[in-house]
């Protein structure tokens, strides 16, 4: 491979990419729109609190008080039911009033392991207020944690923070169509033969496409991350974004090698995009998807970004994600190359 040729071809591809108004609009508007979406969402986590109650004694004033304050209440059928609803995040927290609550002045506060400490304190304060409302005096609190998962415990994430990995992922994959178009055009317009009849090699052409793809996928997502997350965990995020970009490039390469024109690029792209955005929902609403989504390599990109951005996960816990991305990229590139080889003859 010749570095000079790669630079010349990359410059040419970038010129062609930005001469295409559709793709330059997607790049710029996508970045701007996602930043606006991020900042338009509330900074705090969901403010509506749903309280679960299970009591061995008769409660009268609490329900009236909560209704007055427009707070949703879940009446648990047992303490186990209460714990289950807390663990599944159906309710924000649970309060168990044992039969001796009045004598011991003690109740059980059940909170999820992922609940931030500040929120736990807030829930304890609410429980104390409710006890005071019902019985007229102060009480001791015994809180019990339901452990759900180990790694991600201890932090409630606002929606907009959950959206960061998803939007960064969308910015990465949005650029694949541009890359596919450049590859497909090179084949369909047969300009690739003009290039190959010069000192340029097939390696130079595809490496330059890769560089072009890396620039167009990495820069918008990197800018978005820097604006929304800043430099926190930057080296790890940067590393994962590079692998994410390479994943998008491999998809673009495959689509470009199959497609014959813009319509077929959109057709293939649409099907592939639907498939690869499914894992994003797992970040937005954890536990809503079946485990089969893990066969989609895109899951490991979104999941990896989610882990670093929202849980400060260390490199070792991201290693499986990175390895799976590398393997899937290799497979996609291999398929793309085989198809291209057939088309070039």
């Amino acid at each position: 491979m010749n570095l000079n040729n790669i630079l010349i071809l990359t410059k040419k591809d970038l010129t062609l990419f930005f001469k295409n108004r559709f793709f330059s609009m997607i790049t710029i508007l996508g970045l701007v729109a996602f930043i606006i979406i991020y900042f338009a969402l509330p900074k705090l986590e969901e403010d509506k609190i749903k309280i679960g109650i299970y009591s061995d004694v008769s409660l009268t004033k609490i329900y009236y008080f909560l209704e007055l304050h427009d707070t949703e209440v879940y009446d648990a059928s047992s303490i186990e039911d209460l714990k289950e609803k807390v663990s599944k995040k159906v309710i924000s927290f649970g309060i168990y009033f044992p039969s001796n609550v009045k004598e011991k002045k003690t109740l059980k506060l059940i909170v999820n392991a992922e609940t931030e400490n500040e929120m736990k304190e807030a829930y304890e304060y609410i429980a104390k207020e409710l006890f005071h409302t019902e019985f007229g005096y102060q009480l001791n609190i015994e809180s019990e944690n339901e452990i759900i998962g180990v790694d991600l415990a201890g932090k409630q994430i606002p929606v907009r923070k959950r959206l960061i990995p998803i939007l960064a992922f969308f910015l990465i994959i949005a650029e694949t169509l541009g890359l596919s178009t450049l590859i497909s055009d090179e084949l369909e317009n047969k300009t690739i033969y003009a290039l190959l009849s010069t000192p340029v090699t097939v390696g130079d052409i595809f490496f330059s496409k890769g560089v072009m793809g890396l620039i167009t996928t990495l820069i918008p997502s990197l800018l978005f991350i820097l604006i929304t997350v800043g430099f926190r965990n930057f080296p790890l995020i940067f590393l994962l974004l590079i692998f994410g970009s390479l994943f998008a490039i491999s998809i673009g390469f495959l689509i470009g090698s199959i497609a014959k024109d813009m319509m077929s690029i959109i057709g293939y792209g649409f099907v592939i995009f639907i498939l690869i955005i499914i894992p994003s929902f797992n970040v937005l609403a954890p536990g809503t998807l079946s485990s089969w989504v893990k066969i989609i390599p895109a899951y490991y990109l979104v999941d990896g970004l989610h882990k670093i951005i929202n849980f400060n996960s260390p490199f070792l816990s991201l290693l499986p994600n990175i390895l799976i991305l590398i393997i899937s990229q290799g497979i996609l590139f291999l398929f793309g190359s085989l198809i291209l080889k057939r088309r070039l003859i």
């Binding site: 000079n4 040729n5 010349i8 010129t15 062609l16 295409n20 047969k190 003009a194």
Partner: peptide, 27 residues
């Protein structure tokens, strides 16, 4: 020098840009 039977120029580039691109590739 090679001239193909089909037109395989970069249509979105100018005539000058097309020639300069290939001249650069030939160094």
């Amino acid at each position: 020098g090679v001239c193909f039977e089909y037109t395989n120029l970069y249509e979105e580039l100018s005539a000058k840009e097309n020639l300069i691109l290939f001249a650069n590739l030939f160094g």
